[in-house]
Simulated assay, not measured.
Amino acid sequence: MLEQQLINALSLGCVYALFALGFTLVFGVLGVINLSHGAMFTVGAYAALVFVEQFQLPLWAATLAAALVSGVFGLLIDRLVLRRLRANNAPHLIPMITTIGIGIAVTSAMQGLFGAENKRFPQEVVPESALDLGGLHLTVLELGIILLSFALMAVLLLGIQRTQLGRALRAIAESPKAAWLLGINVEGLFMLTSFVAAGLGGLAGVLIGLSSNAIFPLMGQPMLHKGIAVIILGGMGDIRGALLGGLFLGFAEVMSVAYIGSTMRDAVAFGLLFLILLVRPTGLFGKMQQRKA
Rank of each mutant, 00 (worst) to 15 (best):
N34W: 00
F285W: 02
E253M: 13
V50S: 12
A61H: 11
I208P: 05
G144M: 04
M236W: 15
A269H: 13
G166I: 06
F55I: 03
L21H: 09
L189K: 10
G271L: 13
W180Y: 09
V26W: 02
V279W: 14
S194A: 15
A66L: 02
L243H: 06
L249R: 01
G115M: 03
I100P: 00
S262M: 08
Q221Y: 13
A47L: 07
V254G: 02
N118Y: 10
L158G: 09
R170K: 15
S256Q: 02
A67Q: 01
T42S: 13
R86V: 03
I100H: 01
L6H: 06
L273M: 15
G205F: 09
G71F: 00
L272F: 14
N88R: 15
G74K: 03
A269W: 10
R291M: 14
G199F: 07
I100A: 03
G250Y: 01
I231R: 00
L192F: 12
G134W: 11
G74S: 10
R240V: 04
V69H: 10
L30N: 05
D238I: 12
F248L: 15
Q221I: 15
G166P: 08
L157P: 02
L59N: 04
I146A: 02
F121E: 01
L85H: 09
G31N: 07
V196N: 08
M96L: 15
H137T: 11
Y46N: 03
R86E: 04
Q164G: 13
L157Y: 12
V50Y: 13
Q54V: 12
L113Y: 13
A66S: 14
A116I: 09
I102S: 00
F114W: 08
T163R: 08
L30S: 09
F27E: 00
F27I: 04
L2N: 09
N88G: 07
L35E: 04
L18W: 05
F23I: 02
S36Q: 04
V230H: 06
Q111D: 12
Q164C: 05
G135W: 03
A178L: 14
G227R: 00
A39L: 01
S175D: 13
V257F: 10
L284R: 12
Q289Y: 08
V257N: 14
I77Y: 06
S11D: 01
A47K: 03
G209Y: 07
M236K: 12
Q290Y: 07
E117M: 11
L93R: 02
M110N: 01
A293I: 14
V52A: 11
Q123N: 13
V196L: 14
V230I: 15
I260A: 11
V69E: 02
A242R: 01
W60V: 11
G283V: 03
I184S: 04
L218N: 14
A20F: 03
W180A: 07
G250P: 00
L224W: 10
E174G: 07
S212R: 15
A198S: 13
L57Y: 08
I77Q: 07
E187R: 05
V32C: 05
L85F: 10
Y46F: 14
Q54M: 08
G134H: 07
F216N: 02
A66N: 06
V125G: 07
H92L: 10
